[in-house]
């Protein structure tokens, strides 16, 4: 269903701001849950239950001096966090969050852009997002940043392979790369996490590594290595990298919900976006739970896990699914 361009524009503005808000409260939720899991309170000073903490953090980051390392390549040094941020935000455009509504005599789609190769678009944007880390580490002109960005790239590139292969089963079953079609197919038949359990598990682990969350947070192993590619960044430029990371987490959670848990489908259809939100919330909470429970992997363990376990499992899953799809139809 076509909708006028200005509706898409309004929707894009609203969604971007909602994602930023979701990011802000993901950090709050993370600190709160981590705190409670470690018998602490977490933030509880700024506002009731520390609810204003994200805004306090934002004001602090924005007001900080934005310095340059003397040797930094200026345009690239500035561009790197922007690239990360842009790709993180843009990827959400194709994720459907509702069935679409009739408001007055306009039809409003349940996604910003209905792209026929939405899944490829998301992975393409994710690959471009890696450049944020590469350029940021290189343009800082510091050994530690460069080593950190190499570490990051090696991890992200390795796990991108498994991430893309793991959804192949879903694509085969949904017979489309369009996320809207995949969601509708799941609503009509079965949520894909049941037949694609192996795919879901691979996607899940690869997703943790892609968003560099613990236990795969080698890109910024804050307790043992120098902070990684954003060592030389401070203030809101660092904040943009961090924001991009969290938004990637939200986007990939939303993608997992879309691919394996039928997106906005739920027991009561008019509540579509709420079901979607609830599922994403559960995903994000599980990530925080994992962070609280599991120690960080060693780098060789990380690589071994990615190449020797995830990749073969994803490949076998894709092949078996392909055979089954052909055999059944």
């Amino acid at each position: 269903m076509r909708e006028p361009w200005w509706i898409s524009l309004i929707k894009a503005g609203v969604i971007v701001n909602l994602i930023m808000l979701a990011f802000a409260y993901t950090t709050w939720l993370e600190r709160k849950l981590l705190g409670r899991m470690q018998n602490r309170f977490g933030p509880n000073r700024a506002g009731p239950y520390g609810l204003l903490q994200p805004f306090a953090d934002l004001i602090k980051l924005v007001r900080k001096e934005s310095f340059f390392p003397v040797a930094a390549r200026h345009p690239l040094y500035i561009a790197a966090p922007i690239i990360s941020m842009f790709t993180a935000l843009a990827a959400f455009a194709v994720i459907p969050f509702g069935a679409g509504w009739q408001i007055w005599h306009y039809h409003v789609n349940g996604e910003i852009a209905n792209v026929s190769i939405a899944l490829i678009l998301i992975f393409a944007l994710g690959s471009i997002g890696v450049y944020g880390a590469i350029i940021g580490g290189w343009a800082s002109q510091s050994k530690f940043s460069l080593l950190g960005s190499m570490r990051t790239c090696a991890q992200l590139v390795s796990y991108e392979v498994s991430l893309a292969l793991s959804v192949l089963g879903v694509v085969l079953m949904g017979q489309s790369l369009n996320l809207v079609d995949i969601v509708n197919k799941q609503g009509a038949t079965i949520w894909f996490f049941i037949p694609q359990l192996a795919g879901l598990l691979v996607f899940f682990f690869a997703m943790i590594a892609e968003t560099s969350r613990p236990p795969f947070d080698l890109p910024e192993a804050d307790t043992e290595l120098v902070a990684g590619y954003h060592t030389e960044y401070g203030g809101m430029r660092w904040g943009l990298f961090q924001t991009a990371e969290y938004i990637n987490l939200i986007t990939l959670s939303a993608l997992a919900v879309t691919l394996f848990f039928a997106g906005w489908h739920g027991p009561y259809a008019p509540l579509g976006p709420l079901w979607f939100l609830l599922k994403v919330f559960i995903f994000v909470s599980v990530f925080i739970w994992i962070r609280a429970s599991v120690p960080r992997l060693r780098y060789d363990q990380l690589m071994r896990f990615g190449w020797k376990i995830l990749l073969p499992v994803a490949t076998i899953n894709a092949v078996v699914t392909a055979l089954l799809v052909v055999w059944i139809s």
Partner: peptide, 16 residues
């Protein structure tokens, strides 16, 4: 098992 340990802490009073 570690996940159960961390999950149980959610329902305890913080000792801070």
């Amino acid at each position: 098992k570690g996940f159960a340990v961390t999950f149980r802490q959610l329902f305890k009073k913080p000792i801070t």
